[in-house]
Design a protein around this nucleic acid. Sequence first.
DNA 1: AAAGTGACGCATT
DNA 2: TAATGCGCCACTT
Length: 103
Amino acid sequence: MIQKKLFHEIRKTVKKIPRGKVTTYGAIAEFVGTRDARLVGYALWGNQDKKIPCHRVVKKQGFLAEKYSLEGWQGQKSRLLKDGVIFVGEKQVDLKKHFWQPR
DNA sequence: AAAGTGACGCATT
DNA sequence: TAATGCGCCACTT
């Protein structure tokens, strides 16, 4: 159901996030050509495409999306830990070690 | 067809 | 320091 360019770019970009890395909504938004970070989250929301590792997308300070669908930040955290991502606190990842620049 | 809604981020008040 | 506004896209009602 992907046809709109921005959504396509967003999802395609998220799919490319390597295991053990995370990126931010803002970074992706900027990468696809918009300042609207909400668009990034919205592109993933309701789709939950298994090909898309949405759990590797966090807020700019490394915090997980509080409105993450279904499992919430806890489920997201589990998957990140499985990826080898180091956490700082309950819902914040170590961005300086795992940040991935969209490309 | 128009307005409302939605996983954020940054600037301004 | 906290609160609010704008940014600006696609989708739903």
